[in-house]
Amino acid sequence: MNIQAVSRHTGGSVPEVGQPHTRNETACHDLSIRVRDLSLWYGDSQALKGLDIDLFQKNITALIGPSGCGKSTFLRCLNRMNDLIPGVRIEGLVEMDGRDVNQVKMDEVALRRRVGMVFQKPNPFPKSIYENIAYAPRMHDLVSRKPEQDELVEKALRDAGLWEEVKDKLHQPGTSLSGGQQQRLCIARAIAVQPDVILMDEPTSALDPISTATIEDLMDRLKKQFTIITVTHNMQQAARVADYTAFFHLGEIIEYNDTNTMFANPATRKAEDYITGRYG
């Protein structure tokens, strides 16, 4: 299977929009989120220009590209975090589980229940480590009794690889942890509500290299349970962790491909220039 470049703007013919250029044969290919002709305006300036992309379940998809290319904006379209910004207008389809998530009828709170998010800077709540994790499941009625809750907190912390480090200080404030630990706490917090998709917006950009490596390992383990879509500035990171990679430029997806192919043999000139470090 060797299809031509996705983007209309690069002149390639487009047999099936949104499909990656090539497919990772070993990965599972169930569709998680389907995006068609998605455009977004901040006031008068258009930040996303008719994006088409299919995102697959239980895979890691990395979004790369120079800053200001719209990758974070796109990520925030997937759980409607852009609703919080005044003056934003969105057109096009973002489909998940057979539903258009941008419809007025769609409850954005329910959407965010299923599409979690981890932010660039760790943002633990000003509560204890335990409460940081237990708070949301309790509000969502995922747990009812204390032992259940304890169990869930432990599981989330174990899944995030933080349990051994914090099991003796669960009732200390979340802010007392180091930056890398805080970010893993935020990941644990996100997986504790058992979402389908986890969005990560440059999750390691504020961290040191060792913490970054820990989180990359974690992502690799988590993709067995969750669909992960991550924005990264760091090309090596995309190459290391992602199954698929989409290259964004000026609000468009220039190339979307199996990660190995993308880095070994990019189909477009712009992607090649960016990957080889000629700009960006």
Binding site: R114, M117, F119, N123, F125, A136, H140, L199
Partner: peptide
Amino acid sequence: SMRQGALALG
């Protein structure tokens, strides 16, 4: 970021 963190949890 506090608000966004909570909203993103649903």
